[in-house]
Nucleic acid binder design. Structure first.
Lengths: 130, 130
DNA sequence: TTAGTATTATACTTATCAGCTAATTAACTA
DNA sequence: TAGTTAATTAGCTGATAAGTATAATACTAA
């Protein structure tokens, strides 16, 4: 029973599933419509499985209309993921080099704590252990 | 051999690994420093494995300093992931409801194509099938 | 050289995932 | 009713992942 965020990232960790989401941005589509671009490389049950993963992650909602299951995009779960990523925006940029240098002056070099008489400094708190 | 984006998302799909990244935002740390918060629930080799996943994804760089392996955050691979997410920003917001209604007026209802004489409309192109 | 610390490697178990084929359900159509 | 289309389920395989315990490696220090 993984947490929501893990489930979201896990669902995104597949190119087929990302392609399905990209397709759904253009509007709702049935299962076979979604499957059509992949049928050369994959069978329909395969696509159904991917859809189930997306459904479990809450990214896709399946309705019923006669024998069709119109699928719609639900991007709400992506919000948490996007917020998580935002925390790292600063570290993504080209300023990474200078930032890295700066951090080296702030963080004591690894191993110092065991080489000196100073007590082992416990690692700083972290906030993402869900 | 999964694509880069899949590898990135896959690496993020684990709370332990996300916690490690969060810790590394504060500065470099050795393997045992990174492992310390988890040693109640996981062994050291377990953490080493998680680090290897992060390393393969290019999110963590391991150096050498005597018997220590100082780990540093490398957020560059997150850039692609963030860009991917940005495409969905519009769909995450509360305006989803109205947007959904709007899309329904644009996209023909599922099944219409087989009920009428119109040729089966092929699904629109998609751009994320990497 | 010996002992101790930090880290990784190996080998194994268990669980999950991605894919397939074949069979099944559910709804429409003639 | 029989046939067709849309989608799912079931059962199987092979690959990968997470976790363990134990052993090996790499370096420091006495």
């Amino acid at each position: 029973m993984p947490d929501t965020l893990s489930q979201t990232f896990s669902a995104l960790a597949d190119p087929t599933r990302r392609a399905i989401l990209a397709r759904l941005r253009l509007g709702e589509a049935s299962v076979s419509q979604l499957a059509e671009p992949f049928l050369g490389q994959m069978t329909l049950p395969g696509v159904t499985k991917h859809l189930k993963v997306l459904e479990r992650a809450g990214l896709v909602t399946k309705g019923r209309e006669a024998q069709w299951r119109p699928c719609t995009l639900n991007a709400a779960p992506l919000k948490d993921a996007a917020e998580w990523m935002d925390e790292y925006r600063v570290f993504m940029e080209a300023s990474l080099d200078r930032l890295g240098e700066y951090l080296k002056t702030v963080t004591p070099p690894v191993g110092e704590s065991t080489r000196t008489d100073a007590p082992t400094t416990p690692p700083p708190p972290y906030d993402d252990h869900r």
